[in-house]
């Protein structure tokens, strides 16, 4: 069994046929016996919700699971509602949850008694990227230009739009400020789509939207990307606009504003489930990742297709948790007592 986990732990940049062929016989021992609830700890229409509904759709379309699945949004308290439900469903194999960075940020910022270790990690599906966007008709040629302009305007004069408060978008903003010395006014909105629209309407000067949230406005010539918050460029070489592909966007390090942040899109289960039950979902999600629909979605949203399972996933989570703790501590976002 562990052999399979190791195999799956390879970075699945090209989710290949070799993986599909890996025998998963012992993982098939357990199967869901009733409707599986797929919990989204966020509202409808956001990035996590879109991915959950896509996974649900892929499973249904390709008949990957005999029992039905329902997607349930439990976004109350910045996702705490959903996390606490799964935490309390001890040993229930019919609940899975998709997470975003609020897995780390919500308990740290609010003091809600919850930690990712309260859940059973199943599989990382992908990592979501962040890009610095500005309106297309602004004169900035690079992230460096933009940050210089923000500095020149004076502290707090440039507005950065983002989703939520004390969550990933604001963490990136603070990290960017630390790195460059510029000072933005961060404005929290309710959802990524709204943030991109607010930028098009020039109610803010820039945003750190995920690629999928702003790609349409980019193609329509309303927004332009300045840099991607990762240590390497995006891999997708197909032209998105007439002149540019995702891979043409420089990293923020190249652009001279060294900041990086990627966001987890991963699946968890309730605590105390059996090894077989977990393996069932591990193999189910692997099948999902091998479908053409999934690959198309990955490319459209320029996701980083790292997919980890087992101990590698746990180690990654451990590292990210510490990193978020550090980032949030520096930003002063920790709840009292954390």
């Amino acid at each position: 069994m562990f052999r399979n986990l190791k195999t799956g732990a390879l970075v699945a940049l090209v989710a290949g046929a070799a993986l599909a062929a890996a025998p998963m016989a012992d993982a098939q021992a357990w199967e869901p016996t009733k409707t599986v609830e797929f919990i989204v700890p966020a509202g409808t229409g956001g990035g996590a919700d879109q991915m959950a509904r896509l996974i649900d759709a892929i499973i249904k379309k390709n008949n990957l699971m005999k029992q039905p699945m329902v997607v349930v949004n439990k976004g109350g308290g910045a996702g705490a509602e959903g996390f606490l439900e799964v935490k309390n469903a001890k040993g229930d194999p019919h609940k899975i949850i998709i997470t975003l960075s609020n897995l780390f940020t919500t308990p740290l910022a609010t003091g809600i008694p919850f930690n990712w270790k309260d859940l059973t990690p199943v599989s990382m599906m992908a990592l979501d990227q962040f890009i610095l966007w500005v309106p297309a008709d602004t004169p900035y040629k690079s992230a460096k230009d933009y940050v210089e302009a923000a500095k020149k305007a004076g502290p707090g004069k440039f507005k950065m739009g983002g989703t939520g408060s004390k969550q990933e978008d604001q963490i990136i903003t603070v990290a960017l400020e630390k790195q460059t010395g510029a000072k933005f006014t961060y404005i929290p909105y309710k959802g990524g789509g709204e943030v991109a629209t607010q930028l098009v309407g020039k109610h803010v000067e820039s945003t750190v939207n995920n690629p999928i949230e702003a790609v349409s406005q980019w193609r329509a010539g309303q927004l332009k990307p300045l840099c991607v918050f990762d240590d390497q460029r995006l891999v997708y070489k197909g032209k998105v606009t007439e002149t540019m592909a995702w891979s043409d966007i420089p990293t923020c390090k190249e652009a001279g504003v060294d900041t990086d942040y990627v966001m987890l899109r991963g699946i968890f289960m309730a605590p105390s489930v059996t090894e077989e039950q977990r393996n069932y979902y591990v193999s189910l999600l692997k099948k999902v990742r091998e479908t053409p629909e999934w690959k198309e979605f990955m490319e459209k949203g320029a996701f980083n297709q790292t997919a980890l399972i087992g101990d590698d996933y746990k180690a990654w989570l451990q590292k990210e948790e510490q990193r978020h703790y550090q980032l949030m501590k520096e930003a002063g976002f920790l709840a009292p007592g954390k």
Binding site: G45, Q50, L54, V215, Q217, R219, E293, F297
Partner: peptide, 12 residues
Amino acid sequence: GGLLIWGLQPGP
């Protein structure tokens, strides 16, 4: 969400 699944990107 439906639009996205059908491969249609809402937006301008």
